[in-house]
Each structure stands twice: as structure tokens, then as C-alpha cells.
């Protein structure tokens, strides 16, 4: 079944025909060309496709695109404003929280979602918030440091 829906992604409205069974991840990547949410497992396990959905982190592979009509979707492309990196992006660079980079967009969106809800999380709260974002390179250490740094200086 085909649905014509309006998706609000990064503040822009996109009118897009979507199939019932296509996930938000598929539509973002393949119909809108927004490729920062990554396809890692399509099973809600790795977090590489994390986007903000009404401000909260969700796996875009676990949402049907048609469900997303009327909701506000944010991806990493929306973080930098007026040519300036978001503090989380700066902090990820400063702390060397990036290695292969494949998990990075999802990590950043999870981090943004966390800080929006809890601006000064403890280390345990950061770890809990990142449990659904797998990283095989960094051992998470620098990612946690980077988020903590932003929280401590805001």
C-alpha cells in the first residue's frame, strides 16, 4: 500500500510517497537522501540509525515511515547551526570520540536526546542512555567523556 505523507525532517517538510512496510530509516536514506542514520542491523539492536522523534531518540529502523507523519524528526544534519558545530560535535572531536565514525551520528542523537531531558547526567546515566548504541572501535570511553564535558559546561 502506498501512502502520500508529509515528513518533517530537520525543520523541512517533505511530501513523499511511502510504502506501508517501509521503515523511516529506508525512507530517510533512500527517498530523502538523508544518509546520516546508518543501516547497521535493521533490528533495533545497534543504534546506528538513531534519530530524534519528537525530541526523543528512537531507532529509525523500528518505526514505519507512515507512522512518522505529524512528528518532528531530527538527524545529525540538523545539529550544526549557522555554520557552527553543535557543542556535542565539538566535544566529540576534542575528545577523539570518533574512530570509524559509523556509530557517530546515532551516538550524537542519543546524546542530544539525553541532555535535552537530563542536562547534567551522571556517568551511569550516560552509559544507560547509550546502551542501545553499539560501538566496536572506541570502547565508549571517549564518547562518555565527550558527553560529560558538554553537560559539565552548560
Amino acid at each position: 500500500m502506498l501512502h502520500e505523507i508529509t515528513l518533517n525532517v530537520n525543520g523541512e517538510l517533505h511530501i513523499v510517497p511511502v510504502k506501508s512496510h517501509h521503515t523511516l530509516l529506508t525512507v530517510l536514506r533512500e527517498q530523502l537522501g538523508i544518509t546520516s542514520p546508518k543501516r547497521g542491523c535493521e533490528n533495533g539492536e545497534c543504534g546506528a540509525c538513531t534519530v530524534l522523534y519528537d525530541g526523543k531518540p528512537v531507532n529509525s529502523c523500528m518505526v514505519l515511515a507512515v507512522e512518522a507523519e505529524g512528528h518532528v524528526i531530527e538527524t545529525v544534519e540538523s545539529l550544526a547551526k549557522n555554520g557552527e558545530l553543535h557543542p556535542l560535535q565539538k566535544s566529540f572531536i576534542e575528545h577523539n570520540a570518533v574512530q570509524c565514525g559509523f556509530c557517530t551520528p546515532g551516538m550524537l542523537m542519543s546524546a542530544k536526546g539525553l541532555l535535552a531531558e537530563n542536562p547534567h547526567p551522571t556517568e551511569e546515566e550516560i552509559k544507560h542512555a547509550l546502551a542501545g548504541n553499539l560501538c566496536r572501535c572506541t570502547g565508549y570511553v571517549r564518547i562518555i567523556d565527550a558527553i560529560k564535558d558538554v553537560a559539565d559546561h552548560s
Binding site: 536514506r29 537522501g33 544518509t35 546520516s36 546508518k38 543501516r39 538527524t75 545529525v76 544534519e77 545539529l79 550544526a80 558545530l85 560535535q89 566529540f92 572531536i93 576534542e94 577523539n96 570518533v98 565514525g101 559509523f102 557517530t104 551520528p105 550524537l108
Partner: peptide, 21 residues
């Protein structure tokens, strides 16, 4: 020194194979 690839990786600008059109 900071990683030379970090800026592109935190902005989502980096393209991996499945991102190529």
C-alpha cells in the same frame, strides 16, 4: 593533533558505500 577525519564524521558528511548514490 585532532583527527583529520573527525569533522566530516560528526556532521554526517562522511559517505560510506551504502550512502553513495
Amino acid at each position: 593533533v585532532p583527527r583529520i577525519d573527525a569533522y566530516d564524521k560528526v556532521t554526517g558528511a562522511v559517505q560510506y558505500v551504502d550512502d553513495l548514490q
